[in-house]
Amino acid sequence: MENRLIITKYSDQYYPPSPTSFTLFWRRFIPFQLIRFFVLNWKIIRIVVKGHT
């Protein structure tokens, strides 16, 4: 990634993973994100409902 070029080698910032353009594409691809929207909603609702008695 081009970001890496301005990161000092051996600093903390040098090691973590950077998303590829493929990953970035899916993060913005509306049809895929629409599906994720419903999946995430379901997961959150399940967490809230199961969290208390």
Binding site: M1, N3, I6, I7, Q13, P16, P17, S18
Partner: peptide
């Protein structure tokens, strides 16, 4: 840790922990 660092690296945000 990796998730948060990756988010910052992607954006050129540096950090002091």
């Amino acid at each position: 840790k990796l998730f948060a660092e990756s988010y910052f690296v992607e954006r050129n945000i540096t950090w002091i922990k």
